[in-house]
Amino acid sequence: MRTPAPNLRLGSAPDSWGVWFPEDDAQPPYARFLDELAAAGYEWLELGPYGYLPTDPAVLADELARRGLKVSGGTVFGDLHTPERFEETAAQVGRVAALTASQGGGHVVLIPPLYRDEKTGAVDDVVEWDAAQWRTVHAAANRIGRQMFEEHGVRIAVHPHADTQICTQPQIEALLDGTDPESVSLCLDTGHVAYGGGDNLDLIRRYASRIGYVHIKQMDPAVLRQVRDEGLGFGEAVKRGVCVEPPAGVPDPADIVAALSGLDAELFVIVEQDLYPCEPDVPLPIAVRTREYLNGCGLGAR
C-alpha cells in the first residue's frame, strides 16, 4: 500500500448507492445510505441531489455527527445558457450552497442540465452551444461563482457530464478558457471526461490550477463503444454497466491518483459509480472494495 497522498481526501456520494433523484422508489432510504457509507469506512461525503438528505441544517448535522461523517460539498444542476433562467439557477445553487456551508462544506459542484431525459433518453435541448450561448455561460458561471463565495463562502466547481454541452475535451477547455479562475473551478470527473473522449492526465497537466474538486470513476470501454455506435443516452449506458469499479475501466485510477498527488492543492476526491437503478444490497460491497483499492493507490487513510 502506498503512503496516502497528504493533499487528497477520499469520500463518496449518494450516486454510488444508486441515488439520482430527491425521491425515487428505486433508491435506498437516506438513513441506509448514511449507515452503509460509514460502515464502508468513509468519513467524507457529498450531499447528492437536494432533498434526498435532510435539508434542515440541524437535522442533517445530527444525522452526520452520530455516524462520524463530514461534508465535502454539495451538488446541483443549473442552467447557465438560458439568460432568462439565471435568477432561477442562482436560487437553486444558493440553497445548496447554504446547506453545504451549514455543514462546513466549502464546495458546490454545478452540473449543466442534461439535454436528454434521464429516464427516457429523449433529447429535449440543444446539444451544442453556439458562440453567443458560450458567452452567456461564461458570464453566468462567473457571476454565480462570485455570488456563492460572497454569500456563503463556497467555491463553485463546474462538472462536465455526459449528455450535456460540457462533455468533450474541447468543450471543457472552452469552459475553462472563458471563465475567471477566481470564480470558477473544474470538478474533474474522470469518468465523464473519458465518456466524452477526453484525456484526464492531459487536463491535469495543463489545467492543474483550475482543478478545485474531483469525482473519481471509471468507464467500461466496451459500453462506451456501444454509446457511440448506437447513439445511447447516459441513462441507458448506466443500465448497461458503463460505470465500473476499480481497477476495471478507463481511466486507470492509480494514474489519476498519482497525477493529483503531485498538484500544489488540497483536493477532495469523491467516489462516484453511477448505479441507478440497482438492487439494495449491491452498493455496500462495491463501496468497501473501491475504498480498499483506492487506499492501496495512496488515496486516503479512510
Rank of each mutant, 00 (worst) to 15 (best):
I204L: 08
K217W: 01
Y207A: 06
H161V: 04
L201H: 09
R205F: 11
T190M: 14
A208H: 11
Q171Y: 03
H161G: 13
R210F: 12
Y213C: 05
H161R: 08
S185H: 15
P221I: 11
S185I: 02
Q169V: 09
S209E: 13
D177E: 14
L188F: 10
R228M: 05
A208K: 05
G198P: 00
D189V: 02
S183D: 12
I204E: 12
Q218Y: 00
D202C: 00
D163E: 13
P160S: 08
L224N: 02
G178Q: 10
D177F: 05
Q169H: 00
T190A: 08
S209C: 03
L188Y: 10
R225F: 07
V193A: 06
H215L: 09
K217P: 03
R228E: 07
L203P: 08
G191N: 06
S183T: 12
G196Q: 02
S185M: 13
A194E: 10
E173P: 07
D180F: 11
H159I: 00
N200K: 03
Q165Y: 03
V227C: 06
A157D: 13
I156C: 14
D220L: 04
Q218I: 01
A194T: 15
R205M: 05
Q165H: 08
D163K: 05
L186N: 09
T168L: 01
V227N: 13
N200V: 14
Q218W: 05
N200C: 15
G178H: 03
I172M: 09
H161N: 12
C187N: 15
V214W: 02
H161M: 09
V214G: 04
G196Y: 05
S185D: 10
V184S: 14
D189A: 03
Q169I: 02
G178L: 13
I156H: 04
A174V: 02
R205P: 06
C187E: 13
G212Y: 06
L186M: 14
A208M: 10
D202T: 09
Y195K: 03
T190I: 11
L188D: 10
R228Q: 12
V214R: 07
H215M: 04
L175S: 12
C167A: 01
D189K: 07
V158Y: 14
C187I: 04
D189C: 10
Y213T: 03
C167G: 04
R228Y: 09
A208S: 15
L186D: 13
N200G: 00
Q226S: 12
P221Y: 14
G178V: 10
D199E: 15
Y195F: 15
V227D: 10
A194V: 01
Y195T: 02
Q171D: 01
L201G: 13
